[in-house]
């Protein structure tokens, strides 16, 4: 399913957060969104998910505007995983994943064996099936994030939006969650803060000060010169001797200068 945004604009108290962003995400694509803190990634994600109404512009799912679609219909097509949604309730893992079925259920079509099957499948695909009866508050951050992804998968979405899914997680969970997301067949938009993780995307969009300043393949975008301009750090590329893939290395601008100075001396 195709996800298209045209001229999205959103500002808070006259301060533009996202201005005039247009992007077209192809069916089945994994699209990465990168940019410094405060560049408007999360706000853009919320508009793409239909949670914030754009002050200008439209978001279309397969050509149909989200404005003309009910919350329930949106949820049947598009699932959104927020950054670290938390709860105080004594809820179980299975309960949390079952919430994903909300958009498919009604008084006329109550919970059925089919729903249980979907929830089981979602739990298995994030490798949390064996923990289905664990309490939410006993889970680690990585496990909670996997449960949120399972909840999103239980919606059987065609489009999956993830806002920094690996934020604050141990490195092992970062790798496993990103691998999981890469393997999904759905159209995926993922906001990332680790630029090395962005290599796994099909295409990358770069946000800076509320604008989408570049869209392209990882090879086109993840170049030291360009990243230095956007993020204000020194970037070097290294080659991983194990698999020959490019890896980015970062230094602060001042230490980079120091380094050059030393070379001069």
């Amino acid at each position: 399913m195709k996800l298209e945004a045209q001229n999205l604009t959103w500002s808070a108290r006259q301060l533009p957060i996202v201005s005039d962003v247009s992007v077209s995400i192809k069916s089945g694509e994994m699209f990465g969104l990168i940019g410094p803190n405060g560049s408007g990634k999360s706000t853009l994600m919320r508009m793409l998910a239909g949670l914030s109404k754009p002050q200008k512009g439209v978001v279309e799912l397969d050509g149909i505007s989200l404005k003309q679609t009910s919350r329930r219909q949106i949820a049947q097509k598009l699932a959104f995983v927020e950054q670290q949604a938390e709860t105080q309730d004594l809820i179980k893992v299975r309960d949390a994943v079952e919430l994903g079925r909300t958009c498919w259920l009604s008084a006329i079509s109550p919970w059925s064996a089919h729903d249980t099957y979907i929830v089981d499948t979602a739990l298995r695909s994030v490798d949390m099936y064996h923990m289905a009866n664990r309490s939410w508050h006993t889970l680690s951050g990585g496990e909670r994030q996997r449960v949120h992804i399972a909840r999103a998968l239980a919606q059987e979405p065609s489009v999956l939006l993830l806002d920094e899914p690996t934020n604050h997680l141990d490195i092992s969970y970062q790798v496993s969650i990103l691998d999981l997301v890469t393997q999904l067949d759905t159209t995926t938009v993922v906001a990332l803060h680790d630029l090395n993780q962005a290599f796994k995307c099909d295409r990358i969009g770069v946000m800076q000060a509320g604008k989408m300043i570049a869209i392209g393949t990882p090879e086109e975008i993840l170049k030291p010169k360009f990243l230095e301009e956007v993020f204000g750090v020194c970037v070097h590329t290294l080659i991983d001797p194990n698999n020959g893939k490019t890896v980015l290395s970062f230094h602060s601008v001042s230490s980079g200068r120091e380094h050059n100075m030393r070379q001069v001396i």
């Binding site: 919320r46 259920l105 919606q155």
Partner: peptide
């Protein structure tokens, strides 16, 4: 009842799973 369950993770999460909050 089902809509109220969906508020467990907050209003955004409820909206995400299809509740007209």
């Amino acid at each position: 009842a089902r809509s109220l369950d969906a508020f467990t993770f907050g209003t955004d999460a409820a909206a995400s799973v299809g509740v007209a909050i």
